Simulated assay, not measured.
Amino acid sequence: MSRKKLPVYLFLGPLESGKTNFIEKIVSNDKFGLDKNILILVCEEGETEYDLSKFGDKNITLHIIDDIDELNAKSLDDIAVTKDIDIVVIEYNGMWHMNSLIANMPENWGVYESVFLADASVFEVYFQNMKSIIIDKLNVSDTVIFNRYENNEEINDLHRIVRSVNRRCKIFYCDDRGVMDPDDMKDPLPFDIDAETIMIKDEDYAIWYNDIMNEAAKYQGKTVRFKALITSRPELPKNVFAIGRYIMTCCEADMEFCWLLSLYNRYYPLEDEKWVSVTADVSVQNYEKQNLDVPVLKITDLYECEPPKEPIATF
């Protein structure tokens, strides 16, 4: 017998960013989870503890996970089944990587909404000191909320940091009164997405890769041309390649090969990675569990070329 599908509301961000208070406001709202059994998984305990009296008559199960080893599909499924849970709310540990959660969620759990919260007054310092862990969360966020925002914080800098990682999320600035102002700044792409063939300049690869991974659906049926490394991988079948470039966000320590699954219907012998110019049609596959659209390239033209002037891509 298959389990009922459970929507997961995911709340991310550094310690003391206001996640607990925000979750209390969301869950206590009369319209949230009416007549449903709600599980709140707390993976990070800050100074603020949950006040269950704020939830009124709602059926709330509060479960605390102190150690990342406790984060496994069987134990989570046991809790959900025992309590007949309908909705899952997760306050995730700001220092744990997202893969640890996604890989260990029960199959019938699917992320419905992910919200990243941060203290506007210290966010830039956090970002500079813990860039990779912050990017890990921003990448999957549907909404970013800057708490404790005052007019002396520089919106342009906060906006720039978020958009360098995630171009699809909504951004809000919330002051101490609880008033939330939306970010309406425009972010034009440095390439023409409506062109017959979308031409990606070497210096724009990181921005394009971030955009297609965050908003894959808008590339469905589009044709793109760019320069990248082509390499084979043991886990990929014949005539399927990884095509991408190394992207550096801040330093060599966080440099990563960012690639796309690429299908080529011609025989192409490849013993080592090579620089190539690629023209490809984009198709999109949806993975429901992660609420994720994944772009797949169907190569129509490929030839070897010289590497870019700057082989490592940056934002």
Rank of each mutant, 00 (worst) to 15 (best):
K4F: 07
D183F: 14
V125I: 15
K58R: 03
L41W: 02
S132R: 04
E154G: 10
E153F: 10
W109D: 03
P307L: 00
V165C: 12
N129H: 14
E150K: 09
V125Q: 14
K170I: 06
L297K: 06
I247R: 02
I230S: 00
D30S: 11
M213K: 05
D184W: 10
N151C: 05
L12Q: 07
F257Q: 03
W259A: 12
E24W: 09
N291E: 08
S132E: 05
F172Q: 12
D211M: 01
Y50C: 00
I193C: 07
K289P: 00
I64E: 04
G94E: 14
Y209F: 08
A195V: 12
M185V: 13
L34I: 10
S17W: 14
T143S: 11
Y303M: 03
M130I: 04
F315R: 04
A280Q: 08
N129P: 08
E203A: 09
E273T: 08
N139K: 13
G94T: 15
F146T: 12
L236K: 00
G221I: 05
K274Y: 04
E203R: 13
V240N: 00
E45K: 10
K5Y: 11
I243K: 08
R266Q: 15
E150L: 12
D119E: 07
L10H: 07
S28A: 14
N210I: 07
M98A: 08
L261G: 01
V144N: 08
W208M: 09
F315H: 03
N265I: 07
S141N: 03
V8P: 07
Y287M: 10
